[in-house]
Computed example of a mutant assay.
Amino acid sequence: MSGHSKWANIKHKKTKEDARRGQVFTKLSRQITVAARNGGGDPEANFQLRLAIDKAKDANMPNESIDRAIRRGTGELGGEAYEQFTYEGYAPGGVAVLVDIMTDNRNRAAGDVRYLFSRHDGSLGEAGSVAWMFDVRGLVEVDRAGAPGLDEVMLLAADAGAEDVEEAEDRFVILTSPQELDAVRRALEDQGLRIRSAELTYRPRTTVELDEAGTRKVLKLIDALEENDDVQQVYTNLEIPDEILEKLEA
């Protein structure tokens, strides 16, 4: 996994998740609403909606909240109209940053994101300035507990149409083309593997390593962005070496 992904797993421990549960539900609700608006309210016929619902259930979002978000998206309930777009920029040390936005007020979101970049010694870029450094990939995380060994998981993933498998401490990370994400997820489930998550993500083509001080600066920017309600996801090409990661965990 990339350095930022490892850091996300560290900081999203249960105590912090509980403290921010309301904010998490707000973001997940927006994802469901937009997915239902764009592709309809049937998760079996709307892949993006199914992914959004799966993420919401993983976060223990109540079923009534999920249903309300779907109905807002299909027009059965009134609500805000959300836009989805991406900002691009640079964190300290030249680290590339993509910020996935979902908002009912573009001007507010633009002002907030610009302020956060400036406050943390970063800078916003023009459209296309850093997006070329990333590829869109499907990502399926499989729980390592109860799963077979790496070699067998690689064979199962390859048979399902996956492109690559990465090994992490407590899970396997399977990469797919965006088009094959749902098919791979379903095939692995059919093989009895426990799926932790399945989503589209941006993977950096090359990564950047900084010293501890520089890494901490970048992570402060990432944290500040992720705490904004309009920000859905933050992707970077920051790679954190294990020795620095251990200091950050301490």
Results as ranks from 00 to 15, higher is better:
Thr236Arg: 01
Leu210Tyr: 02
Val99Leu: 09
Glu199Asn: 12
Phe134Tyr: 12
Ala127Met: 07
Val97Cys: 05
Val153Ile: 15
Asp190Arg: 15
Thr103Phe: 01
Ile70Gly: 03
Leu210His: 00
Phe85Cys: 12
Lys16Ala: 08
Lys16Thr: 08
Gln31Val: 02
Asp229His: 03
Glu163Met: 12
Asp229Ile: 09
Leu175Tyr: 14
Ala69Glu: 04
Gln232Pro: 00
Lys57Gln: 15
Ile195Ala: 10
Gly149Val: 03
Tyr90Ser: 12
Glu199Cys: 04
Pro178Cys: 08
Arg108Gly: 09
Glu243Thr: 06
Val113Leu: 06
Phe172Ala: 02
Gln84Pro: 01
Ile10Asn: 03
Glu141Ser: 14
Arg186Asn: 10
Leu219Arg: 05
Arg119Phe: 06
Leu193His: 11
Pro178Val: 04
Ile70Gln: 05
Asp229Lys: 07
Val173Ser: 11
Asp229Met: 05
Leu193Thr: 14
Lys11Arg: 15
Arg216Tyr: 04
Leu124Tyr: 12
Arg119Pro: 00
Arg171Met: 11
Asn63Glu: 15
Leu200Ala: 06
Glu239Tyr: 06
Ile244Ser: 05
Ala183Leu: 05
Leu49Phe: 02
Asp170Leu: 02
Leu77Lys: 13
Asp164Val: 00
Glu212Arg: 06
Leu51Glu: 12
Val99Phe: 08
Ala19Asn: 03
Arg114His: 07
Asn46Gln: 03
Gly39Asp: 00
Glu152Trp: 11
Tyr235Cys: 01
Asn46Lys: 06
Ile244Cys: 03
Ala19Phe: 01
Ala110Val: 06
Asp42Lys: 07
Gln232Ser: 12
Tyr82Gly: 05
Glu239Trp: 01
Arg171Ser: 14
Ala8Asp: 10
Asp54Val: 06
Asn237Pro: 03
Phe172Gln: 04
Asp18Gln: 10
Ala157Phe: 13
Leu156Lys: 14
Ala187Phe: 00
Leu248Gly: 03
Asp42Met: 01
Lys14Leu: 13
